[in-house]
Computed example of a mutant assay.
Amino acid sequence: MQIIKNIEEIQAVRKKMRGSVGFVPTMGALHQGHLTLIRKAREENDHVVVSIFVNPTQFLPGEDLDEYPRREEADRKICELAGVDILFMPATDAMYHRDEVTLKAPPYLGYILEGHRRPGHFDGVVQIVMKLFGLMQPTRAYFGRKDAQQLRILKKMAEDLFLPVEIVPVDTVREDDGLALSSRNVYLNPEERERALSISKSLKRASRLVMAGETDAEAIKLAMREIMRGIDVEYIAVVDRDFMPLEKVEIKNTLILVAAKVGKTRLIDNIWL
Rank of each mutant, 00 (worst) to 15 (best):
R174P: 11
K146F: 08
E100R: 06
M1Y: 01
M27W: 03
E80N: 13
A82N: 13
H31P: 01
E166I: 10
H31Q: 09
K248W: 07
R98Q: 15
L163G: 05
D99H: 09
E8H: 12
G124P: 10
D171P: 11
P56Y: 11
R117K: 12
V262H: 00
H121R: 07
I251G: 03
I153K: 06
M27R: 05
V186C: 15
L209Y: 14
E72G: 11
G22R: 03
M27P: 04
I112C: 09
V262Y: 00
E250Y: 01
T265G: 10
A196F: 00
A12L: 08
G62A: 08
P138V: 14
L151A: 07
R42P: 05
E73F: 02
T254I: 05
E218C: 03
Q137K: 15
L113N: 00
K77E: 14
I86Q: 00
E159H: 08
L113S: 02
L222H: 10
D269V: 00
Q150I: 02
V170E: 00
T92Q: 14
L222G: 02
E247I: 08
A91H: 14
P164G: 11
R18D: 05
G263N: 04
A158R: 05
R98S: 15
R98C: 13
G62K: 11
M130A: 14
P245V: 04
F53A: 09
M224P: 09
M228L: 06
E247F: 13
I167W: 02
M211H: 14
F162E: 04
V21Q: 02
K40R: 14
V13W: 12
V24I: 13
E226P: 01
S182Y: 07
K201L: 12
V239K: 01
A148I: 05
T254Y: 06
V186K: 13
L273I: 07
D176T: 04
A74S: 13
E63L: 13
D66K: 12
H34M: 06
D75H: 03
F133S: 04
R193Q: 02
A212V: 05
V49Y: 12
F122T: 06
R266D: 10
I78K: 01
A223R: 04
V24H: 01
K15V: 06
Y142K: 07
D176P: 14
A260E: 03
L103W: 09
G115C: 09
K40S: 06
N253S: 13
